[in-house]
Nucleic acid binder design. Structure first.
Lengths: 245, 245
DNA sequence: CCACTAAATGAATGCCGTTCATTTACGAGA
DNA sequence: TCTCGTAAATGAACGGCATTCATTTAGTGG
């Protein structure tokens, strides 16, 4: 199981490869790649914050295909099995990343703006964050909130905003879930190739759809994914707004 | 040793190739599981329809974890490499499955019912089909329609329905995309565990959210995923309906 | 009749996540 | 101060995965 992050433990950032002076290595391998010998090191090399940061760096460099336990270990100058002293499985690493990313979602508007614009800002921010991290979506979808304290914190802020806006209590969760579902699906949509709707050789047998695609392209303000997201989001905001008392 | 080969071998693990049993085969080749010798068989063993059917059977029995190229080959009584004469990669297998499933989505209402109820039926059907197949969603999201003729056919029917209902042409694709995004996200939601919103020990620090969860549970009509889907879908239908001319 | 291609086998590849025995260091209790 | 339990590292596995390749065999067009 994933251990909840301790409040930023002193963190001892990666100890400089060779601590100055105190003890010189006898066989001092002066080349950059000093090999650590087996056994517990004097100062811990790994912690959850470091693992999370390294995972995020790998993902930004090579995408989620680049995030393997071996690559993660290599980037931390550690044997792969060492990771398992801090994490139970690769899924735990994904959870760490997810927790980090959720904290990037902007919920500040709920404290300062009317409900409609607060929801709008939150939703766009949420979509933008996870459009870059769609492989996490299947993980989030099945993730009990207990395991994700920062996600839970986001829900608290959002649901408080809904409540303050006069939303009937028994519909708050459903409305948030519906919005989230739309956001996750739309995040995938952002990653779709530009020509996804090119019906190619079948254009003649699909006149209605092909015409609609061409008409959208002709209008063509903004990326199609953004236009669709805006259209759906405004419909949801409008529909949900009517539920307020 | 008693050695009975199951005629159709349901889920029984195959005997290891190096077991002594293999030697006995020479003296007893008469039972059902005849081993095919190398080289092209007189009649082709594999085709795309058979591969698709076998993949669907594996998925229904063991989920998507059970769908491996090795398992697929085994269920078709074929060596794994034989599959690659018909399919370029495992992704192709998933595409075959996706194409098959899309044909199961019910679009008939667009021919017979008013726009609102047609969209409603289509959306529920679409969600239900893919709720059982969420691992396909990342594949669909990036899939050019050219590669999925039946998906394209579905789009044609749906867009024709929107057009006939008076939808402005340049918004048809965006509306469908928005609905689809909501549907895919909601399909994930169906698979979530029942206690996903149990905030556990953090309940006291999240009063608004915890209260909303409890209130939903108290009302408790139908599954939460269905309630949220209905709420969002009706909002989208209402909002989009206003666009009609 | 022969060359070519299609469709099978079977062996091998490299990568993946994960496990396990082992080594070493730290810290608490006797 | 010794000692013992626990934490954190190494390094060598393991089985499973998708995929590739050489090989064998059967049908087909020229």
């Amino acid at each position: 199981m994933l251990w909840i992050l301790p409040a930023e433990r002193p963190a001892m950032p990666a100890p400089p490869a060779n601590s100055p002076g105190i003890r010189e290595r006898e066989t001092a391998p002066k080349n950059g790649a000093e090999r650590r010998r087996a056994g517990r090191p004097a100062a811990a090399v790994l912690d959850l914050a470091g693992i999370t940061a390294a995972a995020l760096r790998l993902i930004s460099e090579n995408g989620y295909d680049g995030l393997t336990m071996a690559a993660l270990a290599r980037s931390l100058h550690v044997a792969p099995s060492a990771l398992y002293n801090h994490v139970e499985s690769k899924r735990d690493v994904l959870l760490l990343v997810e927790d980090h990313l959720t904290a990037l979602v902007d919920v500040t508007a709920f404290a300062a703006e009317p409900w409609e614009s607060a929801v709008r800002k939150w939703a766009w921010s949420y979509r933008d964050v996870f459009a870059e991290h769609t492989p996490l979506i299947p993980v989030i979808a099945v993730l009990p909130v207990t395991d994700a304290p920062r996600t839970l914190a986001m829900y608290e802020t959002v649901s408080a905003g809904f409540r303050a806006a006069g939303f009937p209590e028994e519909r708050i969760v459903s409305a948030i879930v519906a919005l989230e579902s739309f956001i996750f699906g739309s995040a995938y949509d952002v990653t779709a190739p530009a020509d996804i709707f090119d019906s190619g050789s079948m254009a003649e047998s699909t006149p209605s759809f092909t015409g609609a695609v061409r008409s959208l392209a002709a209008q063509g303000h903004g990326k199609p994914a953004d236009v669709a997201f805006s259209l759906g989001l405004e419909a949801l905001i409008g529909g949900f707004g009517a539920l307020r008392e």
